[in-house]
Simulated assay, not measured.
Amino acid sequence: MLQIRKATKSDKKPILDFCQSPYSGVDYIADVWDFWLKDGTFLAMEHKGKPIGVCHASFSKNQVWIEGLRINPKFRQKGYGSSLVLRAEQIAKRKHYKISRMIIYNENKKSIRLAKSLGYTIEDKWYLYNLKPKRQQSLAVVASSPRQIENLIDSNTYSKSWKWFAFDKSAVSKLIKKRKTLVFIKNKKALAVGIWNDSKLDNDVLQIGYLNGSKVGMKNILYHMQNKGYLQNSKRIQILAQQKIKLQMKDLDKRMLFCLMKKVL
């Protein structure tokens, strides 16, 4: 018999036994498992009393974020992954959330096909870059007003710790109040913007979750983050930028392309 239920601490080892990251070989789920047990809704599917799959859903303003879908290879191609996603969506609908999003590696064609079969579409594509911390000089400053950057917002979403959130006026105001917004200003005009955060998934990692503007302006924002990382002794800076944003800079390591998937519930 199949059953979908809340995940438990005892599910961790049997799930991790078959999990392996397609990127590094080490699945990040091991690091977030205990947090997921307390955050949002962490679902497990069991077969004959043994867990064979998991899926995590977290909730924010008007959306559910679905992540960590894992199915034991012995039980794939049976619709079990779809069942876990649909259960997460069902919970979101009961809570009156209107949008579901997830992120999928661009080369993971099977997962993209699965998402599309459930009604998801590709909302945008985002590249991951890595940058080493380094002592740098920068002309970027902390933004002081939403008006400074309103003409530089060219996305429905921004990223924070590998989750994407609605980039509306409310989000912009909160990010500015938290001093997470950087701008490059020339002749009293903002020419570039960057949104940053401390990654919750990786210790000692700084993230840029949105970047847009002139080449010189974006470079200065990256210089600012390199210097911040140097002063904080961070391991690296991760940059998540839309595919359409053309980043060119010495030491910038272009890694992987991801599809941001969206579904209206």
Rank of each mutant, 00 (worst) to 15 (best):
K9R: 14
R101F: 00
V264E: 14
H56Y: 00
N108D: 15
R70G: 00
F184G: 05
E107Q: 14
S24L: 05
Q77Y: 10
L247D: 13
K189A: 04
K93P: 04
I176D: 03
G217P: 05
R255L: 14
K12L: 10
N130Y: 11
A7N: 03
D124H: 03
I176K: 04
T181P: 05
K160C: 14
S173C: 06
V193W: 00
E67P: 02
D204H: 14
S155M: 07
F75K: 07
K169M: 01
G213A: 04
I237C: 05
G81L: 05
N156T: 09
G53M: 05
N227M: 04
G53P: 05
K189F: 05
S83T: 01
K219P: 03
G40S: 03
K178A: 14
R101I: 05
S138H: 12
E67M: 09
L43F: 04
T181L: 02
K74Y: 12
N72Q: 06
N227T: 04
K50T: 11
Y28M: 00
G217K: 01
Y105G: 09
F165K: 13
W36E: 11
I52A: 06
V205L: 01
W65I: 08
S117V: 09
G53N: 00
K38N: 15
K178H: 10
I221M: 02
K262T: 09
D251I: 01
G79T: 04
K160H: 13
D154V: 08
L201G: 15
N108T: 06
K250S: 08
L265G: 11
C55N: 12
A143K: 00
Y158A: 01
S144H: 10
L16M: 15
P22E: 01
K160T: 06
L240R: 12
I185H: 04
G229A: 07
L118M: 10
I208F: 06
L240S: 12
D253I: 10
E46H: 07
R147S: 09
N151Y: 07
K263I: 04
K48F: 07
I15F: 02
V54A: 04
S111M: 08
M1A: 10
T157Q: 03
F42Q: 08
M45I: 14
F42T: 10
Q136M: 15
K110I: 11
Q242F: 02
F167R: 08
F184H: 10
L84V: 07
N212R: 10
K116Q: 15
L252G: 07
K219Q: 11
S214L: 02
N203D: 09
K200N: 06
K109V: 15
R76E: 15
S111F: 05
N62S: 11
N220W: 03
I195M: 05
K13C: 01
I104N: 07
L16G: 06
T41D: 02
V216E: 14
S161D: 02
K250W: 02
H56T: 01
S58L: 07
G213Q: 06
H47F: 12
K263P: 08
S155H: 11
A115P: 08
I29R: 01
Q248V: 11
T157R: 12
L260I: 13
L265E: 06
R94V: 11
